[in-house]
């Protein structure tokens, strides 16, 4: 316990703010990124509701890093802290920001402006570059996207195929074209069964081949494949 306490004290604040060295700044930003991503992942996995937003999930990462940058800019300066609060309040009243990610970027702009104004040029340059690269990284990796399916496949099954699940032929077609399948809805009207499935294709460009092959199967009709826009979360 003494070792843990000793480690905790070592990692805790030093009693007075250390000077903003480059190493300290980079370490702090990386640590904020690490913890921010962890926070966002936990949020993504534990979210249970209809209001999940990829934008909000990314904002969790942005805000943690921006808050770190803010402390390097403000330091112990109470005047700067009040100035930042006032600027944010003005923006909030003047312009309602519905998207959290927009708010994070507005915050970033303010912080970088304050850093330059207080002549902390190095902090502004390093922090700004880090955050902009982070934004690109989160965009490229589609960070916060929960679904990994490419689209929805809907079809009707009638005759001997219905009621018995997916037939072997259908199964072979799915195995040929799809990496993953997940049944979303099953609508049994007695004569026919309508399936809607989330599908992840092996090759997105050959989705029409999947549709053609399925239409060639007896008892399978109304085959529709809707591939979603990668930027839209379904």
């Amino acid at each position: 316990m003494n070792d843990f306490e000793s480690l905790f004290r070592q990692l805790d604040a030093t009693g007075m703010a250390p000077p903003p060295t480059l190493q300290g700044l980079v370490m702090s930003l990386l640590l904020a990124l690490t913890l921010g991503q962890l926070t966002a992942w936990v949020y993504t996995k534990t979210h249970a509701g209809l209001s999940y937003s990829r934008s909000f999930c990314q904002s969790l990462v942005y805000l943690m890093v921006i808050a770190t940058l803010v402390m390097f800019v403000i330091g112990n300066n109470v005047v700067a802290a009040f100035g930042l609060m006032g600027a944010l309040a003005i923006i909030r009243f003047r312009n309602v920001l519905k998207d959290t990610r927009d708010t994070a970027f507005v915050f970033l702009t303010l912080v970088l402006g304050m850093a330059i104004g207080s002549q902390r040029i190095a902090v502004a340059l390093v922090g700004g570059a880090f955050l902009l690269l982070l934004a690109v990284w989160l965009h490229v990796t589609r960070f916060g996207v929960r679904s990994h399916f490419d689209g929805h496949l809907s079809y009707r099954m009638s005759g001997l195929q219905s009621g018995a699940g997916v037939g072997d032929l259908l199964k072979r077609v799915f195995t040929r074209y799809c990496q993953d399948l997940h049944v979303v809805t099953v609508h049994d009207t007695g004569d026919e069964v309508e399936y809607v499935q989330q599908v992840r294709l092996r090759d997105r460009k050959r989705g029409n081949e999947l549709v053609q092959d399925m239409r060639g199967l007896e008892g399978i009709g109304d085959v529709t494949l809707v591939l979603r826009d990668e930027n839209i979360e379904i």
Partner: peptide
């Protein structure tokens, strides 16, 4: 069943969006 090969760009895209993060 002969599976449709997954194109390289799709593999790369999946890698970037998955394990790489």
């Amino acid at each position: 069943v002969t599976k449709v090969p997954i194109p390289l760009d799709q593999r790369l895209s999946a890698f970037v969006r998955g394990p790489l993060v």
